[in-house]
């Protein structure tokens, strides 16, 4: 039996034991259903959800907001990181402000984003992007600063222009840091989107959770949490695929 297969079997067993305990506790009446619900009810809800159009519309909305927030935050963050690494003085000037905004719980900005970008998808995308932006900025900045200066110097002695050095040396050289940031950013974009949806709006999995919780429909809350976990895993795997494709020059041992 291969190592991965046996690992997966053990994982499956852990899940089965966990679900059995949970079901047993609820079955024996040790907890009330609106507190913990039970696996059988959660799966019943999931069964109905996957055949309902309403559910898929909400999944689509959340996915779109998350991806848009991720892309917008990442593109702006990488661009800002490069700009600040290039004009180092500007980073020195802006550093305390960047760190203040970075450390600020961006969720506190949600009400402002609602006013600025409306109750629709815009405010959720903005919140997700604002979480992603600073991580990508700081990671890219560090990545560019960590580049062996002689790689850049070698290109300079060849007569390479600044834009050539940015494209052909600095961008690929900082890719490791950019991808490390992107992996963290998937989770952050999901947080931004879900929190945004929970605060206000009409669609999205966050909005569904908020409504279900108001009605003490704990089975549905757990069901949506499982859907979100699956979504996060799928996004992470997709990112790994992209990373492997972009970084295929790397030795096997260093790959994700």
């Amino acid at each position: 039996m291969s190592r991965t297969l046996s690992l997966n079997l053990i994982r499956l067993a852990v899940v089965a034991v966990f679900l059995a305990l949970w079901e047993g506790v609820a079955h024996l009446g040790l907890t009330q259903d609106f507190v913990l619900s039970r696996p059988s009810r959660v799966f019943l809800w999931l069964e109905q959800a996957v055949i309902s159009e309403f559910f898929w519309i909400n999944v689509g909305v959340t996915l779109r907001e998350t991806l848009l927030g991720l892309i917008i935050g990442a593109v702006l963050g990488v661009a800002s990181g490069f700009a600040l690494a290039h004009w180092r003085r500007s980073f020195e000037v802006l550093e305390p402000f960047i760190m203040a905004l970075y450390s600020l719980p961006r969720v506190a900005l949600a009400p402002l984003f609602l006013v600025w970008f409306g109750i629709g998808e815009g405010s959720k995308v903005a919140l997700a992007a604002s979480l992603v932006y600073f991580v990508m900025l700081l990671n890219t900045y560090t990545g560019v600063r960590e580049i062996d200066p002689n790689l850049v110097n070698a290109a300079r002695t060849m007569g390479a222009s600044k834009s050539f050095i940015t494209r052909r040396i600095q961008l690929p050289a900082s890719m490791t840091f950019i991808f490390a940031g992107l992996r963290v950013s998937i989770g952050l974009a999901l947080i931004g989107t879900i929190v945004g949806e929970m605060i206000a709006g009409r669609f999205g999995l966050g909005q569904m959770i908020a409504r279900a919780a108001n009605m003490f429909d704990t089975a549905q809350v757990f069901g949506i949490i499982i859907v979100l976990a699956v979504l996060a895993v799928v996004l992470n795997e997709a990112m790994k695929l992209i990373e492997r494709r972009v970084m295929r020059w790397q030795p096997q041992s260093k790959r994700v």
């Binding site: 062996d148 002689n150 790689l151 110097n153 300079r156 690929p172 050289a173």
Partner: peptide, 21 residues
């Protein structure tokens, strides 16, 4: 002037781009 290709520079450290063949 810097960037005159007629002057070639070989560095002590390895300056090959690791992501390029």
């Amino acid at each position: 002037q810097v960037g005159n290709p007629r002057i070639g520079y070989m560095f002590q450290s390895d300056t090959l781009l690791p992501w390029a063949t």
